[in-house]
Amino acid sequence: MALILVTGASSGLGYATATALTAGGHDVVVHARTPARVAAPAGGGRWAGVVTGDLAEMGEIPGVARQAAAFGRFDAVIHNAGTMHTPEAATVNTIAPYLLTALMDRPSRLIYLSSSMHRGGSTGLAPLADGAASYSDSKLWVTALAMAVASRWEGTAAQAVDPGWVPTRMGGPGATDDLTAGHRTQVRLATHDDITPPTGGYWYHQRTQNPHPAAHDPKFQDRLLQALEERTGVRLD
């Protein structure tokens, strides 16, 4: 049984992931913007806990980390929360995962939600500071963050996951991917030991793919981490 935090778990992929983990017997702490957005797990059962805060507001992110710390060290953290809207995309999709990663005790496993659209993202980091980042930019950056953590933190497995274009509120009714397949990879990475590669993978439906080349570029990773530190005032050790 593992202790797992899932961000953005009030609906869509986050809720499906958290529900599947709970059904598997794990202790799941869910994050939502407000307590009113938290629903019970589908099919019965209870969450191990709830943390709240708006990840689009950078000032609220440390509070989410403090709430999470009350549950102790997590076995896995799934950074699922996301938005497609500018100017919130950089904060929710990249800065929030960075800050939570930096401020929380290191878990055994970190899983960051990416997107196939990350391949159209820019390696120019100026939009990180000025709020002009696109969804694609933010997903390239969070993918590179996952790879950076994988190469720097011995003892913590970090993976990036493309859940596919699934029919959630964000994906829309015209999405062509399967919602169940969209969360199975996160569940497996959070709970199974037979993972290859054990860290630093970019996953789509339980198979690895090659991400944008910049994601594995140590120089780009260094630039990204420096830009995130300057933007937040928090260093990733």
Rank of each mutant, 00 (worst) to 15 (best):
Y135W: 03
L99S: 02
R231G: 00
T34R: 15
V38K: 06
G121H: 05
E154Y: 05
A40W: 02
R37Y: 05
Q159T: 09
V187R: 11
R66L: 04
A36D: 09
I111W: 00
T52F: 02
M147L: 09
Y204H: 15
T86W: 03
K219E: 14
L125H: 05
V28P: 07
D137Y: 07
P127N: 13
I61W: 00
Q226F: 04
G72M: 10
W165G: 10
P218T: 09
D162C: 08
A42H: 10
Q186A: 15
R207E: 14
A132R: 15
M117T: 11
W47K: 03
R235C: 12
D137V: 09
Q206K: 11
A158L: 02
G182T: 07
D193K: 13
I78L: 14
A20C: 11
H192M: 11
L103K: 00
D162H: 13
P167T: 09
T208K: 12
P35A: 13
A132W: 14
A48Y: 05
A81L: 11
R33Q: 03
S134L: 06
T91H: 07
G171S: 04
G12C: 05
R119Y: 00
D27T: 15
T22H: 13
G44R: 10
D105G: 10
G164E: 09
K219W: 08
V142Y: 07
L21N: 13
G12D: 06
L113W: 12
G43T: 12
E60Q: 15
S116F: 12
V77Y: 04
R73M: 04
A157W: 08
D137F: 05
S108V: 14
A129D: 13
A90T: 04
T101R: 01
A20I: 11
D222Y: 08
P173W: 15
